[in-house]
């Protein structure tokens, strides 16, 4: 039996700035995880990843990252994605600067 598909977002880094970006429902890129599209269907996820990867003039290194949909919106299930959402822990740099 194949493993059940867990919800994911498409994420990448912006080509020019290198910022962490997420794909939205409107197929645009956002800096905010809260605006990202949570994809619950595996075939849909694969297709949207392919489309994202094709946007080589906008983003770099697109991949699917697992998220859970909690009471406060999307939450990374793995600490690596939590750091990507926030920024480094030694300085208030990166995304946490804007919060």
């Amino acid at each position: 039996m194949s493993r059940q598909f867990t919800p994911k977002v498409v994420t990448a880094n912006a080509l020019l700035e290198g910022d962490v970006v997420y794909l939205t429902n409107a197929d645009t890129w956002t800096r905010k995880l809260s605006d990202a599209a949570l994809i619950t269907d595996e075939a849909d996820a694969d297709l949207r990843l392919l489309q994202a990867e094709a946007q080589t003039g906008v983003v770099v290194g697109a991949y699917l990252a697992e998220m859970s949909d909690g009471p406060n919106g999307l939450e990374p299930t793995h600490f690596r994605e939590a750091f990507r959402r926030k920024g480094p822990s030694n300085y208030r740099h990166g995304k946490q600067e804007q919060i």
């Binding site: 880094n13 290198g18 910022d19 962490v20 290194g61 990507r84 920024g87 480094p88 990166g94 995304k95």
Partner: peptide, 10 residues
């Protein structure tokens, strides 16, 4: 030329 892409930036 020493340019990497890391977690948050180049």
């Amino acid at each position: 030329n020493g340019v990497y892409l890391q977690l948050h930036a180049y």
